[in-house]
Amino acid sequence: MNHTASDRKDWPLFEIFIRPKNGLSHKHVGSLHAADAKMALGNARDVYTRRGEGVSIWAVPAAAIAASDPADKASLFEPADDKVYRHPTFYEIPADVKNI
């Protein structure tokens, strides 16, 4: 048998997210290959939770993720930098006023 890339089709790539414990969000931990979603969940369990790292797994086909372009970083994220009125410290309240 030869080893040309053309005679096979890869199992698709899945991105794996794990919830470390209830109360916390799922966090991206890495990726793996699987033929289908069910296998991806099983593989994620075996690959990424061997030391009890999680209580819940999401497997997302990598192709299904829409990602922002780093080139747009300035236009996407910098405008938020000067919107100081979104932060509580923008508002001045006399020190005598409690519980606010």
Binding site: R8, K9, W11, A35, D36, M39
Partner: peptide, 23 residues
């Protein structure tokens, strides 16, 4: 490594074929 890869080819293909049938 080659032996494992070559002998595993039918398994990987089967899983791909089955996933396609399911879909």
């Amino acid at each position: 490594r080659r032996k494992a890869w070559d002998e595993g080819a039918w398994v990987r293909e089967a899983a791909t074929a089955h996933a396609a049938k399911r879909a």
